[in-house]
Design a binder for these strands. Structure first.
Length: 485
RNA sequence: GUCCCCAUCGUCUAGAGGCCCAGGACACCGGCUUUUCACGCCGGGUACGCGGGUUCAAAUCCCGCUGGGGACGCCA
């Protein structure tokens, strides 16, 4: 059974790049009937942060990237927080020392700094390397803290066949006797990562491109441990719109920001998947399609730039593909916290469904849907002052009052008939549809931009429509020119 | 500086030697539709970084250059 993992460090939130790495792993696990393992890399206490870890879990939950093993669900290979695995790292490290492939290093931070400074002063262009002071010594001082370093043979090269990048070989000369376990007992990233991937029986390590350089040391550790390494898949990075590494400085990199802005999780997944992966000319994918179609060979090799407009387009497309039921559910959730909204209308399926149906072609996010239909859920719409000033002239208001009377005079409240009757009525007065529609739209919704007039009338119904037409006109008449709506 | 990765329209990408004087999507620019705003529909421009090879044939293979990105911690 395939076992893959996502191993984020809890440094604040799940960003787009991390989410995509998680997605690719998850897709592979799901398509192979494998296991998706979540492990939190919080070895460094400075990085151990409950809130951050929770934000990551929440992001994954929202995206629907469920994990089979990890925090909250447990599993046979736990614990799944590195901070709880220190004994395991120690055991592995000491085992390597016992076998003579790693050694204790008692060099202090000061000594190392001095060596580094001397190296810098010498003007050498080569990068500084640990001079191997303790490599072959056994005169270990008592009660002194020590780090554990791997004995690295700097001849030859270390390489692997990357699932996305193909063959990569890196000269061992670029390596050194790097640290496995710090003198305070905590593992360094490369060691903790290998020990965990090994003991959790991971067979594909998926991570960002920026980790390519960590792979040779990790391979050396697998070798020292006497184990076959897993396979590696290094996915290209996501760059900001301006082409730099994505960071908090760039707007909206956190997954939860998209949730809060009214994006759909499947839209985020779709957009992320298409950033670096492709399936011919297809742009829109459901989650199920992604699972079915995902393959490592179709993951691209070059970095991709984040593009907000394309993302929005993908989001809009997914929004329009939602079933009315799900959409109503999501819009309710998005709108619930708005206290001005009348719960009665929010609960009214007929009104809500009709309203939502008029909004999907002109909104891209749930947030926008909510804003578009809010007029139907409020006791009185919120009137946009410039719209009122522009369209609710005295003449227009008079027309609205007459229009209300017309509506009430109709034998049935049926859309087709309503439209014909209105058109005839306008024709008789030699007026254009525009002359009525704009003022009416403002009176009914408070906005100059919204659904078609007859759609709005249908959403509100006869009674509320007439009420709004008259009260808007009334308010203007009684309340002077500054439109006290 | 050293090492590594990458290189097709503005952006995401299709393209695994002839089907490509390069296709799709977003964006952009026109037009149609029209009760506003959208949706939708039709049309348009724009790309294989450069130089060498290999081959009957190269966007596709090889080399170099250039450009971009990443990594060089007792961080992850």
């Amino acid at each position: 059974m395939v076992r893959v993992r996502f191993a984020p460090s809890p440094t604040g939130y799940l960003h787009l790049g991390g989410a995509r790495t998680a997605l690719f792993s998850w897709l592979w696990a799901r398509s192979q009937g494998g296991r998706f393992v979540l492990r939190i890399e919080d070895t460094d206490r400075a990085r151990h942060d409950e809130a951050s870890a929770e934000a990551i879990l929440e992001s994954l939950r929202w995206l629907g990237l469920d994990w089979d093993e990890g925090p909250e669900v447990g599993g046979d290979f736990g614990p799944y927080f590195q901070s709880e695995r220190q004994a395991i790292y120690r055991q592995f490290a000491e085992q390597l020392v016992a076998r003579g492939v790693a050694y204790r290093c008692y060099a202090t931070a000061e000594e190392l700094k001095a060596a580094r400074d001397a190296h810098t002063a010498s003007g050498s262009k080569a990068p500084f390397k640990y001079p191997g002071i303790w490599r072959d010594r056994t005169d270990w001082p008592e009660h002194q803290p020590y780090a554990i370093r791997l004995k690295v043979d700097e001849r030859g090269q270390t390489g692997w066949n990357d699932l996305v990048k193909g063959r990569i070989d890196i000269p061992n000369q670029t390596q050194q006797d790097f640290i496995l376990l710090r003198s305070d007992g905590l593992p360094l990233y490369n060691f903790g990562c290998v020990v965990d991937d090994l003991s959790m029986k991971i067979d594909i390590v998926t991570r960002g491109d920026d980790h390519v350089i960590n792979t040779p040391p990790q391979l050396l550790i697998y070798e020292a441990l006497g184990h076959e390494p897993p396979r590696f898949a290094h996915v290209p990075m996501i760059l900001s719109q301006s082409g730099e590494k994505l960071s908090k400085r760039h707007a909206a990199v956190s997954v939860l920001e998209y949730r809060d802005a009214g994006y759909l999780p499947e839209a985020v997944l779709n957009y992320l998947a298409r950033l670096g992966w492709s399936h011919g000319d297809q742009e829109i994918f459901s989650k199920e399609e992604l699972i079915r179609l995902f393959a490592w060979e179709n993951v691209g090799t070059s970095a991709a730039r984040y593009d907000a407009k394309k993302f929005l387009h993908v989001q809009a497309t997914h929004l329009r593909r939602q079933s009315p039921q799900r959409l109503a559910e999501l819009v309710r959730a998005a709108i619930r916290s708005d206290e001005a909204v009348d719960a009665r209308w929010l609960a009214d399926n007929v009104t809500l469904d009709k309203a939502i149906a008029t909004a999907t072609s002109r909104a891209t996010t749930l947030e926008e849907v909510a804003n578009t239909i809010r007029y139907a859920l409020l006791p009185r719409p919120h009137y946009d002052s410039s719209a009122v000033a522009k369209f609710l002239s005295e003449a227009a208001c008079a027309l609205l009052v007459e229009f209300a009377a017309l509506l009430e005079s109709l034998p049935t409240w049926e859309l087709g008939a309503l439209e014909t009757a209105t058109q005839d009525w306008l024709d008789a007065r030699n007026l254009s549809m525009k002359a009525l529609a704009q003022p009416a739209r403002v009176a009914l919704t408070g906005q100059s931009k919204n659904a078609g007039l007859f759609e709005i009338l249908d959403v509100l119904g006869l009674e509320r429509s007439c009420d709004r037409l008259r009260s808007a006109a009334q308010a203007l008449r009684s309340g002077a020119e500054e439109a006290p709506l």
